[in-house]
Design a binder for these strands. Sequence first.
DNA 1: ATGTGTGAAAGCATTCACAGCT
DNA 2: AGCTGTGAATGCTTTCACACAT
Lengths: 247, 247
Amino acid sequence: MSQATSGVGSGTGAAAGATTPSDFPDLPEATVARLPEYLRALHQLADTGHDTVSSEALAAAAGVNSAKLRKDLSHLGSYGTRGVGYEISLLIAQIEHVLGLTQRRGVALVGVGNLGHALAGYAGFGSRGFRVVALFDADPRLVGKTINGLVVRHVDLLVEFAPAEGVAIGVIATPASAAQAVADMLVAAGVTSILNFAPCVLAVPDGVDVRKVDLAIELQILSFHEHRKSAAGGAVAVGAGAEALPR
Amino acid sequence: MSQATSGVGSGTGAAAGATTPSDFPDLPEATVARLPEYLRALHQLADTGHDTVSSEALAAAAGVNSAKLRKDLSHLGSYGTRGVGYEISLLIAQIEHVLGLTQRRGVALVGVGNLGHALAGYAGFGSRGFRVVALFDADPRLVGKTINGLVVRHVDLLVEFAPAEGVAIGVIATPASAAQAVADMLVAAGVTSILNFAPCVLAVPDGVDVRKVDLAIELQILSFHEHRKSAAGGAVAVGAGAEALPR
DNA sequence: ATGTGTGAAAGCATTCACAGCT
DNA sequence: AGCTGTGAATGCTTTCACACAT
């Protein structure tokens, strides 16, 4: 997947000011991928009136085991109290800081068809640290329409408009045939993070991160396990076969 | 956290399948997760007139390195010819067989709001081994509507209708607050594979597979890398700057 | 007592590099 | 020669289990 490029310079420049200059642990990628889930679970706990939480309880809410959770959190530095647990608000702040969510990042959505339209209206973006700031499409019938308060612009204007709109992340929701061209434009506009919903691989320069979401792939993975389950016992008396299931 | 599992009952039984149980390697989970991508790449190659392909070329088309590809394919048994490469049609057939895609599985979609509506119309399902066979929602304004030739039923009818419609996989596209209740119903209806788009963890009995897709999480992971990139230096940072890790 | 933080051990996954088939 | 298939080596992740702080 993404390859971490350079390390953290010993902040000579450190121009970014706003965020605390405190050091940047270099976190295992597996840990980074779980932090958002912890964050979600923490917000849920905070909303239900909790103040502190044990690793056991938080792990349950996030769907992992407690040893993993503690190890993950230990990479951020120590924010728990032995014998007590973690203070929720403190931990939320710390995770948000590490993930860079203290600044609300702008998202450009390219492709406002079926899926793209749904994404444009997805409230989860807004409530979890992001703001959709621009919409693009190649279809003249869509260009000019307003969706959720944003006008759809022609994709040819992407390179021109994206930088001004403060786009930090590009989301590709076009057909596969258009995805590479869109990725090229995003890169040309200075975007270095891309979320790709099109079923194809993208070629991008070093330093650009691409993550992919492919719905059909998820289903096919489920299909494999389904297939295996039905092939397993043959007879399989009743459910509850406690086979060693992976995952 | 309500998670009334209980009432699993319903015998999945249905031993009808005559797939040979013997030819089932137990594949590493990481390999299973990549097979769908190989399959997509193979179809692409087949469509552009290719007949055989080397591990190097297929790996490039799938976005992995060739050693990994060969190792993955070796788990399925040997389907390549040394000195030549892989015969594409043969490999497609083999992967489809292993993933259980020879039978087109039925998908029930629960939650036909913004996202669910888009999923109902997503062509990628149909073209890659699945068929949406039922739609459910709790909103009376949506129940009764026809989307893509399917009538939206009330979610309370799920347990009654799903088995008859041949549902093998359930897709949850409801708000998080409803997701667990829907999961319980799917389980009660005998569904043992669930794809969850709601931002929450689901409690399900052993033997039920859940995969989760959370769009905000993907963005947050990208945010982390973005954050780190901008902490490293100005913003210019031309690629190719592979640096040694700090210490 | 209780529950975090963390070395050490175990388990997976990826990469290397080359033997062996065509 | 060219390219697959695969043991061996490396690196990463998870799990264990317990010292240590409160």
